[in-house]
């Protein structure tokens, strides 16, 4: 008998995609910090960029990627060290982290995007 492994495949693929995305972001993020060494005005000009609608929305994506990757990583650790190797357990944890990601995304998205609707960004 063969179980459907939809959830496992999806979490595997998402883990890789978000991992690649965060890795690339982190490199750009560190390179951006070079402005700290160039000068205060240059740095202030650089961070103004983050206060634009595009970056506000991109931040929500970044938050989602980090949340997913972190929670799914935790799921992998739990599966590895609990010794429970059943598909049902893996699936159960999968839906728990889907729930947690959405749950944490809701207030996070609200806080990140609020300034857009107040005209502050």
């Amino acid at each position: 008998m063969r179980y459907s492994i939809k959830e496992g495949m999806l979490s595997w693929l998402l883990h890789r995609l978000t991992g690649i995305g965060i890795f690339i972001f982190l490199i750009i993020h560190v390179m951006g910090a070079i402005y700290l060494k160039i000068g205060p005005e240059e740095w202030n000009h650089h961070v103004e960029l983050f206060n634009t609608p595009f970056f506000r929305v991109a931040e929500v994506g970044l938050m989602g990627a980090i949340l997913w990757h972190g929670l799914n990583g935790l799921r992998i650790i739990i599966i590895d060290f609990s010794g429970i190797r059943t598909n049902n357990f893996a699936k159960f944890l999968f839906w728990i982290i889907v729930f947690l990601t959405i749950l944490l995304m809701l207030p996070g998205t609200y806080i990140l995007l609020k300034p857009l609707f107040e005209g502050a960004a």
């Binding site: 205060p40 740095w43 961070v47 983050f50 206060n51 506000r56 300034p115 960004a121």
Partner: peptide, 8 residues
């Protein structure tokens, strides 16, 4: 908040 990340 990303609007308050000045050098200071």
């Amino acid at each position: 908040g990303v609007e308050n990340l000045e050098y200071e």
